[in-house]
Write a protein that binds this DNA or RNA. Structure first.
Lengths: 356, 356
DNA sequence: AGCATTTTTGCATTCGTATGCAATATGTGT
DNA sequence: ACACATATTGCATACGAATGCAAAAATGCT
């Protein structure tokens, strides 16, 4: 297979000949800031136009040693949060004149094939936006001298940059909110247990609950997966001591959990059960769910990610940088609302304890 | 800005020197099917391992004139259908040893910047998976000799390949279903009116309704956008002669429409209003919505897309090919169910008229 | 106009790999 | 051991654009 031939494509030399100048002149015409007179530039442009010439980015990359390509590794697009991230990333990267090479799919164990690809294409930077990726991969890339940013995730060894939100504080905030709502029995449906985001959210949640005297949290494992979250919810809601307050590690699962609670157990939300999610994805806002959720400032997160990458690329320094942003607890209808602490800011209701 | 230097990276010559062979030998070692003795291959592999060598895909592309990169242009990831497509595309392209360069964002008028990028990176093929892209772009690429496949969309001039489903038949099927459900007054909330998918769905819907004596369809414009669909739904449901059957051009909008109907107009679904969507996206299956929806066989569509691309790439022929698949009407709870015609196939309920 | 400066230009080389061709090594059959 | 076929190998060149350097042209200044 693979024997086909491709159209040759116009080269700078052809344009040069046509314009009656040297190949260098053509190159300079298309290199911003290069030394070229308006006159020749014009001649070149005309010739280029006629022939339909566009500089070959491959050849350019070869000699400049930059591909102007950023690799984005994203394991699961099913969670609506990530498509949004992807779109925003695309927007910003284009603005910086970079292209986006996408790698999807779960690559838990053998990250090697992906790593090979990344290295082979000499990408200028890598964004790991997935909670289930081996941290091995990131180390390897960093060692190879390619800037890496972990998106919505960190590793213990902080040799590699990351952009996250204050997940621990977020977990606390959720707990405070549910406590203020007068709930008695607390549950948690986790994401992937080893992921930093999940861990931090849970730690914060538990901390605050323990401080308030609740040290018996019912925990189920959802692995950031709908089906597993459903199963965990079924198990949890079947218990005699079923919780009346449930924190689900992300909205993607929270939606599934809500459906189970309502339609399989006939529970009223939030009367019988309060549910709080995380991420504040689009679906959380849909009226049928109206999920009360800790938001992650997606745009600012993406912006920070791109900024870190750009600065590392241009400086050549790949000193790890950790950007930590904060979200807000968006109050909707999936959880009982405390009497105080909820403020309204241009149409959105936010829980800010102490500032009723 | 942009003054940084990148780590040099190991070259085939370095490996060659180390292994005591020529650069050609190294190249041949990494070229499947090339003439190389097991002995030297081994030596080369050892040296490559030690130095951490990986062939430079950029340099390779330059000389082979193939980038092994497929560009995917996708305007709106907000519609859950497309992230799914993207994920599946990623899976199949990796399998074929191709990389996926993603372009997002609306580029209605000036598709030129995108086109430039595509050309500059000498992508081996292009997938246009967006209903709002200028057809101009596809023509241009095809002319440039790059295989193009339109995904879920066609153009009048069929010079460029496409993969679609029988949207017209789908529209008919929806109409038949709603007619069989005994509905009296029919509405339609459209996507982008100029898009082929929207047009075909509507044409089929109307045809079947007109044949049944209903020629007064209430139409609203949703432009495949949630907010616009909501507005259209509000307008439509406020009418004194409000429809009791509503076909929404895709599930992405149908979700929004359902929320408006239920929570703003207090309508019971499907008692007061039946809603049918299109695409059968994940959210349609969520119990809170349970949208009855025409499915599009996503996996087979993606498979066909990749197949067309691969065959065009390897043959060098870019003769347009049109693959048209069929979906099923997935019956759930958002629309009244006819007494007959609904069959159950391994757990899923499907409407197949005439085969009760 | 004459000289010093600055700007523009072309030449030649480089990036890292693939590949046609000729040279060499290996293997076969007698 | 010989002639011959076959499998490997290295040499040299090509891919298309960028860039240091020196030559050439344009400009400024007196």
């Amino acid at each position: 297979m693979d024997s086909g031939v491709k159209k040759p494509g116009v080269t700078s030399s052809q344009v040069a000949r046509r314009a009656g100048v040297s190949q260098s002149a053509v190159s300079r015409t298309f290199t911003p800031g290069a030394s070229i007179s308006p006159k020749t530039r014009e001649k070149v442009m005309a010739a280029a136009q006629e022939l339909g010439y566009r500089p070959n980015a491959i050849a350019r990359s070869l000699i400049t040693n930059r591909s102007r390509i950023i690799a984005v590794v994203m394991a699961y697009l099913e969670n609506l949060f990530y498509p949004d991230v992807l779109e925003e990333l695309g927007r910003l990267l284009v603005k910086e004149n970079y292209r986006l090479l996408l790698f999807t799919g779960h690559m838990d164990r053998d990250s090697d094939p992906v790593f090979d690809q990344l290295m082979q294409y000499r990408v200028d930077g890598i964004i790991l936006a997935s909670t289930t990726l081996s941290s091995h991969l990131s180390e390897e890339c960093a060692t190879a001298g390619i800037p890496v940013v972990l998106f919505n995730r960190t590793t213990e060894r902080d040799a590699v940059s990351s952009v996250t939100t204050r997940n621990r504080e977020g977990g606390r905030r959720v707990a405070e909110f549910l406590l203020a709502g007068g709930h008695k029995r607390f549950g948690y449906i986790s994401g992937v247990e080893s992921s930093s985001t999940n861990r931090d959210r849970f730690v914060g949640y538990r901390e605050a609950l323990v401080e308030a005297g609740h040290d018996d949290i019912v925990v189920g494992v959802g692995n950031y997966d709908r089906a597993e979250a459903e199963a965990a919810a079924r198990e949890m809601l079947s218990r005699p001591d079923r919780p009346d307050a449930l924190f689900v590690a992300n909205d993607h699962m929270a939606v599934a959990v809500m459906d189970v609670a309502r339609y399989e157990f006939g529970l009223s939300i939030p009367e019988d059960l309060s549910i709080v999610g995380y991420d504040d994805v689009g679906a959380a806002r849909w009226t049928a769910y109206g999920i009360t959720s800790m938001s992650q400032p997606l745009k600012r997160m993406v912006e920070a990610t791109v900024n870190i990458l750009m600065s590392q690329i241009s400086s050549g320094e790949i000193e790890a940088e950790h950007r930590i942003l904060s979200g807000e607890l968006m109050v909707r209808t999936s959880a009982r609302v405390p009497k105080s602490g909820v403020v309204e800011i241009d149409g959105r209701r936010i829980y800010k304890p102490g500032k009723s």
